[in-house]
């Protein structure tokens, strides 16, 4: 017992001050994209060059679909090198079209509407379902339960049964082999409920967008309340999104 207590002091106090203090992310972290300069007139190269179809040119301006973007370190999309990734980790949105980003103000997630906010604002229990996730998004959800993030202090908890849950948090592109299990889990959650898609796969199929064995994301099957992009999203991106959904940021 004494050894445990002494080790506890050795390890120190590790819970972060988030959301009172912003997290310190490494300089090489790739967050919200930045656009340098203007697109040359008529150039649409990025529409072909992004392997995941994340880029489009609309009225002479490049638009990146953050739901498809994998934040690749060697982003091949722009031959002019206009795309770089900034350090802003806050990326969660409420509507799919809000993920279309062209450099203007980014519409971060608004809180749930009053009826559900009243129910879930101080206590949200989520059932996590992995449906073709590669275990990176899953790991970054799991890590929120560790003492660094201490998800429980926000009243948010991952629970073991859909019957105990207020909603589902899904990772993975929804493989064909998991489709019915995802729908069953959703049905088993008592309403009203929330649905959260985490990671590029869950939002739009991610690296597997071209696969005939997957469903290109959760909103092809269910209404989604919160989209958290990234491959995988930084844990703080997920936490920030959850807190915004509950009107806590």
């Amino acid at each position: 017992m004494w050894r445990v207590i002494s080790e506890r002091f050795q390890q120190g106090f590790r819970t972060g001050k988030f959301p009172l203090e912003e997290p310190k992310l490494p300089p090489r972290f790739r967050g919200l994209p930045r656009f340098d300069g203007e697109c040359p007139s008529g150039c649409r190269a990025c529409e072909q060059l992004c392997p995941f179809g994340a880029c489009a040119v609309r009225e002479g301006k490049m638009v990146i679909d953050l739901g498809r973007c994998l934040f690749c370190a060697d982003c091949p999309a722009c031959p002019q090198g206009r795309i770089t990734f900034g350090n802003d980790y806050r990326l969660a949105v409420r509507r799919r079209q809000d993920l279309l980003y062209s450099g203007a103000a980014y519409p971060l997630a608004e809180p749930l509407e009053p009826a559900r906010l009243k129910l879930f604002g101080r206590s949200l229990k989520l059932r996590q379902v992995s449906a073709g996730g590669c275990n990176a998004c899953e790991a970054d959800c799991n890590v929120l339960g560790t003492l660094v993030f201490d998800l429980g202090r926000f009243g948010i908890q991952f629970v073991a049964s859909p019957r105990h849950a207020d909603g589902i948090l899904l990772t993975g592109p929804v493989t064909e082999n998991m489709r019915s299990a995802v729908l069953d889990t959703y049905e088993a959650v008592p309403g009203p409920k929330v649905v959260i898609a985490v990671g590029a796969c869950g939002v739009n199929g991610g690296p597997f967008i071209h696969s005939s064995e997957t469903n290109q994301g959760l909103d092809t099957l269910l209404p989604v309340d919160l989209y958290i992009p990234g491959c995988p999203p930084q844990p703080y991106t997920i936490l920030d999104g959850l807190l915004r959904l509950l009107g806590r940021r």
């Binding site: 995941f52 073709g132 082999n177 696969s211 995988p232």
Partner: peptide
């Protein structure tokens, strides 16, 4: 098993494709 099957091997045919590296990095994300 098989619930996580995303069909990675068939997508590599006639590759390497521009999307291949991302699929290799997410074959098992850990």
């Amino acid at each position: 098993l098989g619930y996580q099957h995303r069909g990675i091997e068939p997508m590599l045919l006639a590759g390497p494709h521009p999307f291949t590296m991302a699929q290799m990095e997410t074959t098992a994300g850990d």
